[in-house]
Simulated scan of single mutants.
Amino acid sequence: MTAAETYADSLRQVVVDDVTVALRLLVDRRDGLGHARTDLLNRIHKLLLELLPGGAKKFLSAPQARALLNTIRPRDLVGRTRRRLASELITELVQVDKKIKAADKELTELVETTGSSLQDLNGIGPSGAARLIGDVADISRFATRGHFASWNGTAPLDASSGDQQRHRLSRAGNRRINRALHIMAVVQLRHDTEGRTYYRRKLAAGKTSMEAMRALKRRLSDVVYKQMVKDAKKAGTGPGGHVGATLQSSAADRIPMIDTSEQSLPGPAEPQPRTPLLATS
């Protein structure tokens, strides 16, 4: 056997898993709907500001926006045009909300088929779980939680100067997973969780709000990694912790590397009981 053949045999086979591909497709669609909803809300808000003397709050549901619009009866051409456009946008918002509800239902059902317990973590809903499962696919690609943090961009980068020891937020890594972890952190900060306690402890230690958020996201990366490894071991069907996963690497990404600046923070926090989340787009 030649050296090239030996090397080829040692490589991990890339296997495309139908579940992870489907999850990536569905969560991309869900993200697109969320962006469309935000755009509609911004346009409705702008028109209402021009129609109402006192303006309107920025985050409105479709029924709230419709109720406000029903109180307006402009007589001039510009006012009537603005009202008609606002009405059309509210109708579009209703349709987008229906699509979002259906997308969330489909994501929830597909995530449940994987046997993942990611949604047990405070701050991870069906979209976050789907993004993690879809993009990570095979958690065994990451030898340590540090490798995982390096890949998702939450590992701090050394920015020390002289005697001053500092780290800054990494802008590298998988930005989709980084965003899921950011949403998880924001949700935890809204509620009485260990995440919020940890964040406040960092502030009390002299960290800026951005530094404390970076540290929290890094910690939550460890929590997610631990949960996905636990799911994989429990399922016994593959390192991704879901039916159909294999011991071979998925095609999501190449196996990441880690350098000395990507250190793990001490001990990940334990999973938190789920808290009812505020409605989000």
Rank of each mutant, 00 (worst) to 15 (best):
A155C: 08
D231E: 11
M213C: 09
G146S: 13
R196D: 06
R190D: 00
A185Q: 02
A205W: 02
R200N: 11
A159I: 04
L169K: 14
R176T: 10
V224K: 01
M184A: 05
D231L: 10
G146K: 06
Q164G: 01
E211G: 04
G134Q: 09
W151V: 05
T193S: 07
H191S: 15
L157H: 12
E211K: 03
S117V: 06
I133V: 13
I139W: 01
Y199L: 11
A180C: 05
T208L: 01
Q165A: 15
F148Y: 11
N122L: 14
L121C: 14
D163K: 12
G123W: 02
H182V: 00
S221P: 00
K234L: 11
R200D: 15
S127V: 15
R145N: 09
K230T: 14
K230C: 09
L220E: 04
A129K: 03
R219L: 01
D222H: 08
R176D: 11
T144F: 00
L118D: 03
R166Y: 03
M184E: 07
R171W: 10
D222I: 07
T193G: 02
S209Y: 00
K233N: 12
A204D: 12
A172N: 10
R145V: 09
D163E: 14
Q119V: 02
M228V: 02
L203F: 10
A205F: 07
G236H: 04
S117T: 12
H147I: 03
H147E: 04
I183Q: 14
A185W: 00
Q188H: 07
L169V: 14
L203Q: 10
G173L: 11
Y198E: 09
H191P: 06
Y199A: 11
Y198M: 10
H182C: 06
L220I: 02
D138G: 12
L203C: 06
D158P: 06
M210V: 11
G134I: 02
D120K: 13
L181A: 12
S150E: 10
R176E: 15
Y225C: 05
A235D: 08
A212M: 07
A129M: 12
V229G: 02
Q119W: 00
L169H: 11
Q119N: 10
M228P: 03
D135T: 11
A235N: 14
H147T: 03
A130L: 09
S150V: 03
A137Q: 13
N178I: 06
H147W: 04
H147V: 08
G206L: 05
R145C: 07
A129T: 11
L181K: 09
N122D: 13
L118V: 02
S160G: 00
F148A: 08
D135Y: 12
D192S: 07
P156Q: 04
K217A: 05
D138E: 14
R218I: 00
A137E: 15
R166F: 04
D163R: 09
F142S: 09
M213N: 12
G134H: 08
M213L: 15
Q119I: 04
R145F: 00
K233I: 15
V224I: 15
D158M: 12
F148K: 10
R218D: 01
I183H: 12
S221F: 03
I183K: 09
S209G: 00
V223F: 06
I177Y: 05
